[in-house]
Amino acid sequence: MNRPAHTRAHARLALLALLAGGGCGSPPPLAKQLETLASWTATMQLAKERHGAGAITYTYATQLRDKADDAFQQASTTIGRAAQTRTDSAYAAAALDSLRTAIRQLEAEIGS
């Protein structure tokens, strides 16, 4: 049901680090991008699980995959600029990697 523990830990650590570093107020752009990546990673994992259970169609699963891929492509081009430190960059890379893995896992599930 839930996404793997390491993905959650990555996302949470990244958010904590950024919020602590950023002080207060609205989340900085990197935090928002990490949230979006984590959200799409979880969406891919839920879609994989639901497709495996026969609850969603192949057509719908591919649409979700395409949307997640759009989010991945967009973040790939912008997240580097938002990362201020080496630690930020490491978290950004980990979040991108998690989403890429989740997309591949869904593709393997639906056979595309």
Binding site: E35, Q63, A71
Partner: peptide
Amino acid sequence: REIRVDAYEQIA
């Protein structure tokens, strides 16, 4: 699952 709704596709 910490899924935010960024697209209608997720709501289904």
